[in-house]
Design a protein around this nucleic acid. Sequence first.
DNA 1: CCAATACATATCCATATGGATATATCATGT
DNA 2: ACATGATATATCCATATGGATATGTATTGG
Lengths: 117, 117
Amino acid sequence: MARAATTTDAFNAVAEPRRREILDALSLGERPVNELVDLLGLAQPHVSRHLRVLREVGVVDVRDEGRQRLYRLNPQALKPIHTWVSKYEHLWEERFDLLDGVLAGLQEDTTQEGAGQ
Amino acid sequence: MARAATTTDAFNAVAEPRRREILDALSLGERPVNELVDLLGLAQPHVSRHLRVLREVGVVDVRDEGRQRLYRLNPQALKPIHTWVSKYEHLWEERFDLLDGVLAGLQEDTTQEGAGQ
DNA sequence: CCAATACATATCCATATGGATATATCATGT
DNA sequence: ACATGATATATCCATATGGATATGTATTGG
């Protein structure tokens, strides 16, 4: 088996920096393909392909407007990523608590309770 | 150019479900390779390879303990993902506010405020 | 109805993936 | 020193990627 398809899920889809750029651009509002082409400096077919991937995983939606196709973000589809990575948030925060604990232990009789953060 | 290497960054590294499983397991504490092999039900060489990828992007650290190698999570390395995806958090939250607004506008003089959902 | 605009799809290619399997390395016990 | 346990690395293979380019489709204007 090869690597999982980029269209497998949001995780795979946003692993590509260009697709993250597209999403970043769309977070400012709906845009037609050509604008994204200009913004990213990529060939149009390429942008269309990236958009296809993003559509397939549900991260963007399209809307026909005359001969343009307006892409818009569907932020909900990013939630699984947020949910997953958030599980680790307390761990990298705890790290500071641990450090604080160690420091406190080393200094044992300092009156200072704790700085901000 | 082909797809970016899995070792390019944390985004690419955690796009693989198995590697997320490994991280999930390691979030409970340091573990030797064989334990991960058992937990994941994968072949040992395969787990070692996944661990190599995770190491290269700095998501895990290793420590030699006799003939075992104990892997431990380095949660900090996941921060970029959290930072990126968090930019969108307010958008999927806002979505409900917008929807409320739209519904209110469409119904202008309906007394009904909004159904569940 | 035809040209032009705005996209989408199809094909070609180099590359690296992930699974499988075999083998190499390194530390420990005897 | 040697067998064993614990991991790492090497090789083989099918697949799908992303870039480039060419072409197909749909909508608008004259």
